[in-house]
Amino acid sequence: MGLEQEFYLVSDTIDINEIWMLRENNRVIDNVVIHDDIIQYITDSLEWIPSKNPAKKGNPDDQSINYYGVTLFDEQSSKSL
């Protein structure tokens, strides 16, 4: 079995610190698991999507996905997606 990337849809009111406990407290609205081969194939298309990276101090605005960690998409991101 190859590497898989997990994506979660959560409420916009969720605290960043709660992201790490999503599965345990059932605050996930929906989720999808995408095989890494597909992510690799569409990486160029993902580069322009606005996002946030909670792994960086202050949860700064960013673009693309955090390949090795959590990526947050907001309403603007979802329109681009």
Rank of each mutant, 00 (worst) to 15 (best):
M1V: 03
M1Y: 00
L3F: 00
E4F: 04
E4C: 00
E6H: 08
F7K: 07
L9R: 11
D12A: 02
D12N: 12
T13G: 09
D15F: 06
D15H: 09
I16N: 05
I16C: 11
I16R: 08
N17T: 14
W20Q: 10
M21V: 05
L22A: 09
L22T: 09
L22W: 05
E24W: 12
N26M: 08
N26W: 10
V28R: 12
D30S: 14
V33T: 11
V33M: 13
H35W: 06
D37K: 14
I38F: 08
Q40F: 00
Q40R: 06
Y41E: 09
Y41H: 02
I42D: 01
I42A: 02
T43M: 04
L46V: 07
L46E: 12
L46G: 08
W48P: 03
W48I: 15
I49Q: 07
S51A: 14
P54F: 02
A55S: 14
K57Q: 11
P60H: 04
D61L: 05
S64F: 10
N66Q: 09
N66H: 12
Y67K: 11
G69H: 06
G69Y: 06
V70P: 04
T71Q: 04
L72I: 15
L72F: 07
L72S: 02
F73V: 10
F73L: 15
F73T: 09
D74G: 14
Q76I: 10
K79Y: 11
K79R: 13
K79F: 11
S80W: 07
S80D: 09
S80F: 08
S80P: 00
L81Q: 04
